[in-house]
Design a protein around this nucleic acid. Structure first.
Lengths: 239, 239
DNA sequence: CGAGGACTTGATTTTGATCAAGTGTTGTGG
DNA sequence: CCACAACACTTGATCAAAATCAAGTCCTCG
């Protein structure tokens, strides 16, 4: 429960790599040697595009990103639907796949002013070769990402009503905020109703109507971007 | 293009680990030392349950599995919807997460008689500590799985009509069969219409009607479990 | 050969999309 | 600091897509 502007390093998912790794008599302090701290992106700016050379892993220190993919893998010129594949919140990682891929497989946009910590792939590669502990941590981080996606798929796919989807979305937000040590009952939504809809496969009207319904039932209170969860039990019961 | 009963080791996604790894003067031949080859599971049998101690990674030598998760993470006794999160086909991996998790995060069922190669977590751990190359390959394999899930999410979520979903599903099957060196134009569906529906978030009736429609348009021919793709271009055009 | 499950087909209903017409909100330039 | 343009959000009416309900037929395995 903090209201600070930045996620602390200790709360950050890049910490396993940034954290000084002690190996025998050696101690590498990557925080100051390897990481470009707090690169700034303004709202609407692109962190990287799908297809760009993948040179870095980022950790989101503060702010929110949305990740989207072009449907037709690459050729982006045509009238081409974008799908929103995920969001990233403070403390989460972006671009982990750059360790094994040459190019990014999705684009990342800042939904609000955001600070990112950047760590260059080359630098990780260099140290990973010599320190197996770093690779182990990479494996763990990738695994977390895999499980998160599994959970997302489970929540969103399968035969769900739009109401269940929206409620699942709120519960997922709460979970991810709580995991980073932030308050879970009052959430400031950084994304638009359209983006929520794109993510869930619903229209903005449907999203709005369901939020309205939940408000009428006194389960949540929503005013513009500010979402207050009043009755968490009720949300869980719906899903 | 082969019609053999088994995927060859060279086609298998566990090969990067099984493959003898040459490190300086050492050569570890894991195929015969470490891997229990071709464990058999009958149709309907469970390879492992969600929550079971995660002791092994499996590679599917032949057959098909379905992976499903309980919605309420663990307590399985209640009337509890299962969601089908993915399928696994010959040559693909199951349970990679056991490297970093204590228990499996999903259950795996054999949809048809299947042979699996099993490699014990302890054995990988042991060698991975000493050979960074093995860890690198694990990272690559995880990354492949991540990208596959991203693609699945992109195909299935987002605002798609049921027709687009079914067509995407067929194209995904073709891709995954081709990737393992199998024929892509004639596919024997190992799963029921209900399971396809569970995966796509549709009812069996909708799945059937769309397959029927595609058959009437002479794009596919489907007879029970046997699906022939007649006009691949047309399928791609729909998506 | 019989039973249970998988599959199919048609009729009806419901959900959520679409269309339309507004009302906030916000950020920028005069 | 205000005006206004652009965009986000809201609400209602209508429509289409897919779910549900119902009643079978077809496999397949014991």
């Amino acid at each position: 429960m903090n209201n600070q502007r930045y996620i602390e390093c200790e709360q950050c998912n890049l910490f396993p790599i940034c954290d000084p790794i002690k190996l025998g008599e050696y101690s590498y302090d990557f925080i100051f040697k390897q990481v470009d701290r707090r690169v700034f992106f303004k709202r609407g700016e692109v962190v990287f595009h799908q297809g760009d050379p993948a040179n870095s892993i980022y950790a989101l220190s503060s702010g929110t990103l949305k990740l989207s993919m072009n449907e037709n893998n690459g050729k982006a010129d045509e009238s081409d639907r974008l799908s929103l594949i995920d969001f990233r919140f403070a403390g989460e990682l972006v671009g982990l796949s750059s360790l094994t891929d040459d190019v990014y497989s999705y684009s990342a946009y800042a939904l609000e002013d955001s600070y990112l910590c950047e760590i260059l792939k080359d630098q990780i590669d260099g140290i990973a070769d010599t320190i197996p502990e770093v690779q182990k941590r990479v494996i763990t981080m990738q695994n977390q990402e895999l499980k998160q996606m599994q959970t997302t798929m489970m929540l969103m796919m399968g035969r769900k009503t739009s109401q269940e989807k929206v409620v699942s979305f709120i519960l997922m937000l709460m979970l991810r905020f709580r995991r980073q040590g932030l308050t879970e009952t009052q959430i400031v939504l950084p994304m638009t109703r359209i983006e929520i809809g794109d993510y869930l496969g619903l229209t903005k009207e449907t999203v709005i109507r369901i939020l309205q319904y939940l408000q009428n039932k006194n389960i949540i209170h929503i005013q513009g971007k500010v979402l207050n969860v009043i009755d968490k039990k009720a949300l869980e019961q719906i899903v």
